[in-house]
Simulated assay, not measured.
Amino acid sequence: METAPEVAVLESVSKRFRIRKDNNLKDRIVHLGRQAKMHRQDFLAVDDVSLSIRAGTTVGLMGANGSGKSTLLKLIGGIVSPTSGMVRTRGRMAALLELGAGFHPDLSGRENIYLNASILGLSRPEIDAQFDEIVAFSGIGDFIDTAVKFYSSGMYVRLAFSVAVHTNPDVLLVDEVLAVGDEAFQRKCMDRIAEFRRDGCTIILVSHSAQQVAELCDRGIVLSDGAVVFDGDTDAAIGVLRDVLDGRYGKGVARTRPAIQLERVELLDASGDRVKVLPEGEALTVRLHLDAERPMERWAAGFSINTPNGHIVFASNSDLIRANLDPIGGRLALDFVVEDLRLGSGTYHVHANVQGVSEPSDHGISHGATFSVETRLQTLGSTTAQVAAKRVG
């Protein structure tokens, strides 16, 4: 099988900004000369990042506020230049980095479509051919000939997103713009990005939503203080992100290894194959991959299935089912089998935990795995509903 080409390569890339503390003219005059350096501070936004992104992948950039996600996206898009290192890209890029970026406030929506699309590389005939679709997708309607300075933030982003996705980019860069707009438009954006994925477009997405990343991305990159602390499977990346946000892991903060550790969570169907989409009512095996640093006589493990909002819809553990667990030493796979999982359609996250009993120890993974349920039933939950009409009176 031929390997997909690289569309973005970063080699030892760093970006440093200079922040001034003397923000007004009076302070700058007073601090002229040798004292001026005392009122400037260097900020390292991206710290020695090396990575490559191949065509056709969807990558989620995650981290706390100020971790360098947006700066890294701008470096990939060529919006800013690195202080050191090298960024190489190929193909047509469309960037959605800020609301209305590339729009002129005094021009109408119509004029800005032609201006922005031409900046993104489309010719006048190509824009003419796409114009009606751009307007229809944005939902701007009668406001298309109104100056965009009178648009709401939602109208801005809808038009900007619509222009970007109709330029047929090879690489789409998205920075949190999916958090703007009403729910219907957000769903439309997600559906369009999913369509891009099917068509082989490369997508690099910055998002604070674990649900969005789990639903859209096949690779997760977690940043902390400008440095990459994890790069790999999306579910594992979301777990690392939780550790970073809780202060348990990050740049300069090493993970402390517990005596018994949960390495990863795997979801299997009735045939023993890894599963991401499960038909309603089918069996699901939650496999916990464990590692005990030294032999342990008594221990326990469990898991929960949660909605994206954090509500538990199913949970179990070895104590509840009165499982007799043999002493553990080294690596072990522990299976919890749910014979008939009845959940409504949607996306679900699996959290898991392992605990040492004879030697107190505890380790868990949030968002250890993600799956979705498909159902043909017109009800939600564990049973179907029947209806019958009965005349009364």
Rank of each mutant, 00 (worst) to 15 (best):
F137T: 05
F137Y: 15
F137A: 14
F137L: 15
F137V: 09
F137C: 07
F137R: 15
S138W: 15
S138Y: 15
S138V: 12
S138F: 15
G139M: 13
G139E: 14
I140L: 09
I140N: 11
I140G: 04
G141V: 13
G141N: 15
G141F: 14
G141W: 14
D142E: 15
F143H: 14
I144M: 12
I144E: 13
I144K: 04
I144N: 06
D145C: 02
D145W: 00
D145G: 01
D145F: 02
T146V: 11
T146C: 05
T146W: 01
T146F: 03
T146S: 11
A147W: 00
A147K: 05
A147H: 03
A147D: 11
V148L: 06
V148K: 07
V148Q: 06
V148G: 04
K149H: 11
K149N: 10
K149C: 10
F150Q: 10
F150M: 09
F150K: 11
F150G: 08
Y151R: 08
Y151G: 04
Y151N: 06
S152L: 06
S152Q: 09
S153N: 12
S153P: 01
S153E: 07
G154I: 04
G154L: 02
G154M: 03
G154P: 00
G154D: 03
G154R: 09
G154N: 05
M155S: 08
M155E: 09
Y156I: 03
V157N: 07
V157D: 03
V157L: 09
V157C: 06
R158G: 00
R158T: 02
R158F: 03
L159H: 08
L159P: 01
A160V: 01
F161W: 09
F161L: 05
F161A: 02
F161N: 02
F161S: 03
S162D: 03
S162G: 03
S162P: 00
S162W: 08
S162Y: 09
S162E: 05
V163Q: 01
V163G: 00
V163I: 14
V163W: 08
V163M: 06
V163T: 03
V163D: 00
A164G: 02
A164H: 07
V165Y: 06
V165H: 04
V165L: 07
V165R: 05
V165S: 04
H166L: 07
H166Q: 02
H166V: 06
H166F: 10
T167N: 04
T167H: 10
T167V: 14
T167S: 10
N168Q: 13
N168F: 08
N168P: 00
N168G: 05
P169A: 12
P169I: 12
P169D: 12
